[in-house]
């Protein structure tokens, strides 16, 4: 077993051991598709780390390389001190993994699914029954523990999936878009579980396309786009990168010609004093500027004077949606499929 080597450290942080370390990881499929390009990341023990990106950005491929489900075509991965090429079995025994798609045996009951996971991970025989009962209670499935999983709702299946990923009490859990497709109530319940295990010391690596989820849960984030990490930091740091407040303007006619004209009006108004970013959104414009609050009303007046009808507007502190827009140049709503359903992204 090889030790984890030190990475850069900041005097502001108390150094912790690296639960995950990836150095220059690349994954190129046999088809020639470069899904992950030279990704390097370090996640210290105990951190709730978010891996954020749109569909097809490389999140799942990266997580699969970290949990040994894919051999990277380049680079090195060390997880919990185990090398992903040399110490695969030990690495697998030291992590929990919840795949993007619900991964349970639908023909087995919840109890049987969790017991299978117990046995597969070698949980000591004497501890199994109590642990199964505890976990099923934790995920609120105790009452239906002996029903076949195929009779469960989507949310119940996800919760059962969580239980099977946690059964061996791993110090590190990988969660690949765990709440995709769930209703807000089910999503909130899962968030509670994730927060709880993290508070108890478990390192969590979460991939998500929901900006709100990353904002709510994560200590630190990395944003991946087109197989490359394009930004990283705490949610607050990333928001600070946006560079000011955000004025969102919804237009009555949000066709391309009108939006382009509105953008020109804002740029040529002189109100932004040469700073700030004006971006087009699905419904109008997004103006990010240190002066957004101060000149917001004047900008709306300028638009009205130019004959452009405004349906609504909002000035707010930057959200991760805005971060995404600032980093990738594309509104999150256009890149993050389904995000609108739960986050209101794209407005």
């Amino acid at each position: 077993m090889q030790p984890v080597s030190a990475t850069t450290s900041s005097p502001a942080e108390t150094p912790r051991r690296a639960a995950i370390r990836a150095d220059g990881v690349s994954v190129t499929y046999a088809s020639g598709t470069e899904a992950v390009k030279n990704v390097s990341l370090t996640v210290p023990e105990g951190e709730f780390f978010g891996f954020l990106g749109p569909n097809g950005a490389g999140k799942t491929t990266t997580i699969k390389a970290l949990v040994t489900l894919l051999d990277p075509t380049g680079g090195a991965v060390t997880v919990n001190g185990f090398d992903a090429r040399r110490d695969r079995r030990a690495l697998r025994g030291s992590i929990g993994y919840m795949a993007q798609e619900t991964s349970i045996d639908l023909e087995l009951t919840a109890r049987e699914n969790v017991r299978f996971a117990c046995e597969a991970y070698g949980v000591p025989r004497g501890e199994r029954t109590a642990r199964i009962d505890d976990l099923l209670a934790l995920v609120d499935l105790a009452d239906v523990a002996d029903d076949q999983a195929k009779t469960y709702s989507g949310g119940m299946k996800k919760r059962l999936d969580v239980a099977t990923a946690l059964v061996h009490r791993p110090p590190l859990v990988f969660l690949d878009e765990p709440t995709t497709g769930l209703d807000p109530k089910a999503r909130n319940r899962l968030w509670e579980y994730f927060r709880r295990i993290n508070e108890e010391g478990t390192t969590v690596f979460l991939t998500t396309q929901y900006l709100e989820e990353a904002d709510q849960l994560c200590d630190r984030l990395a944003v991946i786009d087109d197989g490359r990490i394009v930004a990283e930091g705490t949610p607050a740091e990333l928001k600070a990168r946006v560079g000011g407040d955000v004025l969102s303007v919804d237009l009555v006619d949000a066709d391309a010609v009108t939006v382009e004209r509105a953008e020109r009006v804002v740029r040529e108004s002189g109100l932004l004093d040469g700073e700030g970013v004006v971006s087009r959104t699905d419904t109008g414009l997004s103006v990010t500027s240190q002066r957004a609050r101060r000149v917001g009303t004047d900008l709306l007046v300028a638009l009205r004077d130019a004959g452009i009808l405004v349906e609504g507007f909002e000035v707010h502190s930057p959200t991760l949606d805005d971060v995404f827009l600032a980093i990738t140049g594309v509104p999150a709503g256009e890149r993050v499929a389904g995000a609108n359903a739960t986050t209101g992204a794209g407005r």
């Binding site: 030790p3 990475t7 990341l41 370090t42 919990n80 001190g81 025994g93 791993p170 630190r220 394009v230």
Partner: peptide, 24 residues
């Protein structure tokens, strides 16, 4: 920023793997 990578403060521990609870 195509070259960004996530780096945070971590410390080397040669016994890390030995100290990790693994069921394997």
């Amino acid at each position: 920023n195509g070259g960004a990578e996530t780096r945070t403060a971590t410390v080397e521990d040669p016994q890390f793997a030995d100290s990790v609870t693994t069921t394997s």
